[in-house]
Nucleic acid binder design. Structure first.
Lengths: 291, 291
DNA sequence: TGTTAACTGTGTACGGTCTACACATTGTTT
DNA sequence: AAACAATGTGTAGACCGTACACAGTTAACA
């Protein structure tokens, strides 16, 4: 099989689109990409993404490790295809709707449902905007819910981006609810009101540990509210955002970020050097006292 | 060194709090936790988290791989400490402020700056709420910006949770801007208006590829707007959210998610079995025709 | 003041990861 | 029939994290 990047597409992506040169010459293939991905997904469902190795997948299929490389050029390809298979297609419901809040909420719920079925999806790092059919279908579905709103195209995409991030975040945190075993009393001892003036009262009020799920519900509602007022302002022909941040102060995005990044970097370097010197001093003192 | 979990804290977390039984008996220690973490951070800064191995860190320090295990009980501990060191303390600015929007915006910018300095932070999976001093300090700083608002404690924590997720998301996506090399023409060919009725026009409008950074700015502003209207409603003594979603429909969170999850799971199993059977049929047909 | 016991850094070894490459075999094309 | 491409396999190499035994160093206890 060609396996070289098809046109301009990275190999894995090309496979996901089903755009891949199929060979004619050699022996009939005994395996199939579909079957391999299915097997890998089942392993991940059962024992997590960490249990998915070229060897474990091959063994599950009754073939040798290296045989997989005739179908997939690297493990990363397999992971990409697993992601695409795992995310699947969004529930058909989508379509245009006048009730965009309901549409987006259900879109959001649906993503959570998928993360519930395939938690390992959250272990796959996102390394670009969606490029593959199913992922784009989810985006499309979300945009559908916004199709009848006053938002311009760009804003719709941005809104879906924000929502995607939020649902992924919720999925990640909720998944590890159980793993978070530090007893709140212990934590309360460490979190003194002097060191954490604003956090300590929050913990005292019990607002930290309980109600994870409701916390995310709050976030979702805020985003939806934010979209709603924004739409209202747009419809009213007004500029755009409630309480536009003051442009005079050092507030503009990129400069601010770059500037503080530089400051952080410098401060860290200074600290690190100081620590380094102290360590060296200690070592020398020890050596001297030994001689 | 004891290295056993100190009290109820996982070892790594105990180390981060500086709560760790220090040994008295044996030879003086030549290395230090600080030094090890510093070295690891520098490697990650230079070549990414993937370049951080027990061996690479030890070599950088001029010691053997196994020596590190006298300071850290597993690589995961080291990663946790790297995270804590990398995130550092939030800029002092924080504190109470009447201008919560500005406070949160700067908090958000500051996190992005940190991700800019230590992109590898985004490669470390989040597997619990923050437990370590620096991470809690960031939370505390964020809560400080909300201290003079009408939000109850729980809502403040929830708001910070949402904001944290969003900044992490932005950091992750922006970092890989460069890696996303699929030419938009190629993508445009694949994304047909029939298959992607809502996405296709968005791409045609150029709303997909350009302006990543502004897209996230939009998201941030929506969250802030959402918080603002929520505060306003609270101050006005009204219930809570603009256009509360209809509770009659199948809309409540957990049931809905669980239900669709079950549906997804079933549908997938069915599909998978069908594919499996077809594959077997093909194989058998081949064998028969061969005999 | 020995003696004991704890702790140090080191070296070896094991099981695991991904994948490059040579190999005989199978099937199509010429 | 010959040429050639594609298949699945086996070997081997370069890494990874870490369990464990070892000799040497230091403090605490008899």
């Amino acid at each position: 099989m060609d396996m070289g990047s098809d046109g301009d597409l990275p190999r894995g992506v090309a496979l996901a689109w089903g755009v891949a040169a199929n060979p004619q010459r050699g022996p009939k293939r005994e395996l199939s990409l579909e079957g391999i991905v299915d097997a890998a997904v089942q392993i991940a469902d059962a024992d997590g993404l960490g249990a998915v190795s070229m060897s474990s997948v091959a063994t599950a299929l009754g073939y040798t490790t290296m045989s997989l490389y005739r179908y997939v050029s690297a493990k990363d390809d397999l992971i990409l295809l697993m992601q695409e298979a795992g995310i699947g297609l969004p529930p058909i419901a989508a379509g245009k709707t006048e009730r965009w809040r309901e549409g987006l909420t259900q879109w959001y719920r649906a993503t959570l449902a998928v993360y519930d079925v395939h938690p390992w999806l959250l272990d796959i790092p996102v390394d670009s905007e969606p490029n593959t059919p199913n992922n784009l279908a989810w985006l499309d579905a979300g945009l559908g819910a916004l199709a009848q709103t006053a938002l311009p195209q760009t804003a719709r995409v941005s809104a879906m981006l924000a929502l995607s991030g939020q649902s992924r975040w919720e999925g990640q945190i909720l998944r590890n609810q159980a793993a978070n075993v530090i007893p709140s009393e212990t934590l309360a001892e460490l979190i003194t009101p002097e060191q954490f003036p604003f956090l300590a009262p929050a913990i005292a009020a019990g607002s930290f540990t309980d109600g994870e799920s409701e916390a995310f519900e709050f976030g979702l509602l805020r985003i939806l509210d934010g979209l709603e007022v924004h739409m209202a302002e747009l419809s009213a022909g007004r500029p755009g955002t409630v309480a536009q941040p003051d442009p005079d102060r050092e507030f503009a995005k990129d400069e601010n970020v770059k500037k503080t990044a530089a400051r952080v970097k410098e401060a860290e370097a200074k600290l690190r050097d100081a620590r380094q010197k102290q360590r060296e001093a200690v070592t020398k003192a020890r050596e001297r006292s030994r001689a």
